[in-house]
């Protein structure tokens, strides 16, 4: 679906300092896949997203979306985009803004008001908010209306740059749910976010960028998914018994203070098997969770 080949981009030059934002990035994103771009600040994530959207022209390499250049109108007609910086027309009301984007996306004018109201409802914006100017919106409301415009006409391709930035926990959950819905209908999603737990919950794969290069990739879902780290919590003093039960069931487990047991599992199904093994050994399981520990990728010498 999206094929990025040896993409390089340098900013500055002439009298300014030259900054190599992307340095030979190659990437393939399959149709229906949700890919998270993660990495430290200045890694080149937004530059990559800007190249994927055709806002920036690479110095070298290419981007093809369904075989077409990213600024082809046929690609744009299938694209939804939410920028990190919400530079909307602040003099417009929320309703007028959504209607405008509905029409820009190719929707019929007559359907605009109805679709704007439906889009606002999807992001849980009150109907009254649609009558207010965007200048009066809070940061969280702008994020919501930004997401609403990106989701107009159910785009096949979604490019989202920090979609939950500055939102409260309800807003974060809302963004997650809308992304999971888009994913369920088969949309291809590229998500640039620093919110690693959300990236882990939504994405099929993460691509780690550092200094303009792809330094690691991890598959989070599907047959090729990477091993996960699971954590079980059992009553204090029963961790050793839990570890023994897990060892008997073929898991490599180690106790971690205060009733914690850490083990590696190959997938989500394995966690259920581990919990069952511990419970059958008469050790109550108080909590079980699995994590890819994406933070590890940020640490020097981590898997990045």
């Amino acid at each position: 679906m999206i094929v990025v080949t040896q993409l390089s981009k340098t900013y500055g030059g002439l009298l300014g300092r030259r900054v190599k934002a992307l340095d030979g990035v190659s990437l393939e994103i399959r149709r229906g896949e949700t890919v998270g771009l993660i990495g430290p600040n200045g890694a080149g994530k937004t530059t990559l997203l800007s190249c994927l959207l055709g806002f920036l022209r690479p110095d070298a390499g290419s981007v093809r979306i369904g075989g077409l250049p990213p600024d082809d109108l046929a690609v744009r007609a299938r694209t939804g985009y939410m920028p990190e910086r919400l530079g909307f027309d602040r003099d417009l009301t929320g309703g007028a803004f959504l209607e405008q984007h509905w029409r820009l996306a190719g929707g019929a004018s007559a359907e605009g008001p109805r679709e704007a109201a439906a889009a606002a409802a999807r992001v849980e914006l009150e109907a009254a908010a649609l009558g207010r100017k965007l200048a009066k919106y809070s940061r969280g409301m702008l994020q919501r209306i930004g997401l609403a415009q990106a989701l107009l006409r159910d785009p096949e391709l979604l490019f989202l740059d920090e979609p939950a930035s500055g939102t409260d926990p309800n807003g974060i959950a809302l963004v997650r749910n809308r992304l999971l819905e888009a994913k369920a209908r088969g949309a291809t999603i590229v998500l640039n976010s620093h919110q690693l737990p959300e990236v882990e919950r939504v994405c099929d794969r993460v691509v780690f960028l550092s200094a303009g290069r792809v330094t690691a990739e991890r598959t989070l879902r599907g047959e090729a998914s990477a091993p996960r780290r699971a954590m079980l919590r059992v009553p204090p003093g029963r961790a050793e018994a839990a570890c023994a039960a897990l060892a008997a069931a073929g898991f490599a487990a180690a106790p971690e203070g205060d009733g914690g047991v850490r083990l590696d599992v190959s997938g989500e199904d394995e966690i259920a098997r581990a919990v069952r093994a511990v419970v059958l050994a008469d050790v109550p399981v108080l909590e079980a969770r699995a994590s890819m520990d994406l933070e590890e990728m940020f640490r020097p010498g981590g898997s990045a």
Binding site: F55, A74, L104, Q149
Partner: peptide, 9 residues
């Protein structure tokens, strides 16, 4: 604003 406009067809 130009980005979200030009992301449209």
């Amino acid at each position: 604003a130009i980005q979200i406009i030009l992301a449209r067809p």
